Amino acid sequence: MLVRAFILFCLICFTPLAQAQEFQTTASHAVILDYETGEILFNHNGEEPMPPASMSKLMTILMAFEAIDRGALSLDDELPVSEHAWRTGGAASGSSTMFLEVNSRVRVEDLLRGIIIQSGNDACIVIAEAISGSEAAFAADMTARAHELGLSSASFANSTGWPHPDQVISAADLARLAAIIIRDHADFYEIYSEREFTYNGIRQFNRNPLLATMNEVDGLKTGHTQDSGYGLVASGERDGVRRIVVYNGMESERARANEGERLMRAALADFEVVDLAVAGAIVGEADVFLGQAETVSLRLNDDVQVGIHTRSRDVLRAEVVYPGPIAAPIAEGDVVARLEVSGPGIDTRSYDLEAAEDIAKQGMVGRALAGLGSLFGGN
């Protein structure tokens, strides 16, 4: 028998209005991530792999940053522009470009700005070939490194985000990737807020629309193809709280800009991380069968944090679930139940609950009396 018991934390109550209050978006895929805790505050198809277009370049840039950190590249290195980089990503390609000239050499520092600010496909390929020998090898390395970082939805077929069936990643993993860049490469992250970059006499502007409309926003990367629609990975900070917004599937640049501003304003003002309980807290008890005590206290193994919209703060639901009653003997520390937390706009979270004390088995006489009671009581 599966036993379910509701728990009422100090911040939890129940109301039928929860679903009506849930935040919505017109994007096909969207997440809001709290940078400090890694909590997903809002999730709309956020774990579903999607074509990321030029938002893929976040992984290309991370690979470049890491190559610089380990000494494989330096900012002053001058890298050659191959015919493949020029033809596939240069002016002749008709795609986003840094306007590199074939057989020229370009400083790594300029290439970084060409990717981050100008979204240059040619710059991506130059970096890819320098690090891994070929763009195909680099794409395989990108995928492997993403998986090492826990970005399990990621699959890359190129360095640029050019449409390909194997070029996918979820909005949630893009948000986690952005958090890694911000946390581990703070010096380079400053480039993402630069509004323009001129190379080879050609001035281009940062395509992130929120840099012009929201002072809090300082990155990161737009994306657009016919398959993916218009998307954005954006990060902003207000009063020491940083949030990352990722969304995709918008129909136009204007729609992307408008929805991005709405999502970021909500991310910074309307969502929060709620601390429900700390590891070690006793959150309930479970019935015990044939034990020297009738119940055992249940203790949390982990902190319980939930990211929610502020309107849903009072609509969380917590439930202790265990197969019960639990047969004695029970040793302190045994995982005997779980805590399930659910609410509007969040997936159900499950946390292990362990026995907070030892419960010895009843003696022979006690077991016999319990058996007789069960027989005559009809239980």
Score class of each variant (00 low, 15 high):
residue 160 T to C: 14
residue 245 V to K: 00
residue 261 E to G: 11
residue 60 T to E: 09
residue 261 E to R: 03
residue 131 I to Y: 01
residue 313 R to Y: 00
residue 80 P to S: 09
residue 173 D to L: 07
residue 207 R to G: 12
residue 309 H to F: 05
residue 79 L to C: 13
residue 212 A to N: 14
residue 309 H to C: 03
residue 17 L to W: 05
residue 61 I to P: 00
residue 264 M to H: 06
residue 84 H to R: 02
residue 114 G to A: 08
residue 370 A to E: 11
residue 27 A to S: 14
residue 62 L to D: 08
residue 98 M to V: 15
residue 152 S to F: 07
residue 359 I to V: 15
residue 72 A to H: 10
residue 18 A to D: 13
residue 130 A to Y: 04
residue 45 N to I: 08
residue 138 F to V: 10
residue 126 V to N: 01
residue 352 D to A: 15
residue 210 L to T: 12
residue 89 G to D: 14
residue 159 S to A: 15
residue 346 I to N: 01
residue 226 Q to R: 09
residue 84 H to N: 12
residue 148 E to M: 05
residue 214 M to R: 00
residue 294 E to P: 13
residue 274 V to E: 10
residue 373 G to S: 08
residue 15 T to P: 03
residue 9 F to D: 10
residue 346 I to P: 08
residue 118 Q to H: 08
residue 8 L to S: 09
residue 353 L to E: 09
residue 372 L to S: 10
residue 148 E to Y: 05
residue 197 F to I: 04
residue 68 I to K: 00
residue 186 A to D: 11
residue 34 D to Y: 01
residue 42 F to G: 03
residue 166 D to Q: 15
residue 30 A to H: 01
residue 264 M to T: 15
residue 196 E to G: 05
residue 283 V to Q: 01
residue 347 D to S: 15
residue 51 P to C: 08
residue 133 G to F: 05
residue 242 R to T: 12
residue 134 S to T: 15
residue 265 R to T: 15
residue 347 D to V: 09
residue 104 S to K: 06
residue 186 A to P: 09
residue 100 L to C: 07
residue 62 L to P: 14
residue 210 L to V: 12
residue 173 D to V: 09
residue 336 V to K: 00
residue 276 L to H: 03
residue 361 K to A: 11
residue 332 E to N: 11
residue 271 F to R: 00
residue 124 C to W: 03
residue 189 Y to K: 00
residue 36 E to S: 13
residue 300 L to N: 06
residue 371 G to K: 07
residue 300 L to T: 10
residue 122 D to H: 06
residue 187 D to C: 06
residue 250 M to Y: 02
residue 13 C to F: 09
residue 143 T to Y: 05
residue 253 E to L: 02
residue 47 E to F: 07
residue 315 V to I: 06
residue 39 E to P: 02
residue 126 V to F: 02
residue 75 L to S: 04
residue 188 F to V: 01
residue 240 G to T: 10
residue 187 D to N: 08
residue 113 R to G: 10
residue 367 R to V: 13
residue 163 P to R: 07
residue 359 I to W: 01
residue 75 L to P: 11
residue 105 R to P: 14
residue 114 G to D: 05
residue 320 V to D: 07
residue 112 L to Q: 02
residue 193 S to V: 04
residue 7 I to C: 01
